[in-house]
């Protein structure tokens, strides 16, 4: 379980996170929802140790963040994190050089799933394919948790559908996923837990199945209630 307890972060005098507390379990898809500036990306970066936070605690399976613990987590940011001149096969080599939990077989499987070629250069990929390669790099790791930052951001509908298909495939099952997205409609039916954020605070946290069955509401209905009052 990834657990955040009272995480606070400021940039200068501006508060970005004001005591964020939530949990994301293995085998579940947890979706962080909020408008731009709500702190979604900062939360993922804080979990990965990519941005410092001033207060609170983040643990992964009960342990504090360390290089060993971080091998349990893979992060898929919304920016390309590979060198532009690399070909996809060079990126595979880089990952297999450095990560013990890199699964080359799965990487090839996802490559085929997305209909990408190993010889393609990162710099020549379309936006949709860049997002797919980013996703591939994260999913091909044998990690217990996957953090995805806006995987649908700015890509065409067919790429979105392909990426959404990943969530219901064996590539994700049994793993804990934390995803941030604006495009909630694409994956609403797939998420297990929603965490609604505003101004660096968790406004509401709920299990989607429960809300659907007990209150007959969709995630979007709950979002309307919370954000529009």
């Amino acid at each position: 379980m990834i657990k955040l307890t009272g995480v606070e972060k400021k940039y200068g005098r501006k508060s970005i996170l004001n005591g964020i507390t939530f949990e994301a379990d293995k085998g579940q898809i947890t979706c962080l929802i909020g408008i731009n500036g709500a702190g979604k990306t900062t939360i993922l970066q804080a979990i990965m140790g990519l941005t410092p936070y001033q207060k609170g605690e983040i643990t992964i399976d009960g342990e504090k963040l360390s290089p060993a613990v971080m091998e349990k987590v893979t992060y898929i940011p919304d920016a390309m994190t590979l060198l532009p001149k690399m070909r996809i096969k060079d990126a595979f080599q880089f990952m297999s050089d450095f990560y013990q939990n890199w699964n080359g077989k799965r990487a090839k499987e996802i490559l085929e799933f997305f209909k990408l070629q190993e010889d393609e250069r990162i710099s020549q990929l379309s936006k949709g394919n860049t997002a797919k390669v980013n996703l591939l790099m994260g999913l091909a790791m044998d990690a217990d948790y996957i953090l995805m930052d806006e995987p649908f951001s700015g890509i065409d509908i067919f790429s979105r559908e392909q990426i959404a298909d990943v969530f219901s495939s064996h590539l994700v099952e049994d793993r804990g996923v934390i995803i941030t997205t604006h495009e909630i409609s694409d994956i609403e039916h797939l998420i297990d837990k929603a965490v609604l954020l505003a101004d660096g605070v968790v406004r509401k946290e709920f299990m989607t199945e429960q809300v659907r069955e007990e209150e007959s509401k969709s995630v979007i209905d709950v979002m309307r209630e919370v954000y529009k009052g």
């Binding site: 990965m48 992060y75 920016a79 390309m80 994190t81 060198l83 532009p84 450095f98 990560y99």
Partner: peptide, 12 residues
């Protein structure tokens, strides 16, 4: 555009 520092800082 390609922020490789993400990758470097995430290396095990």
């Amino acid at each position: 555009k390609n922020t490789f520092i993400y990758r470097l800082l995430m290396l095990p």
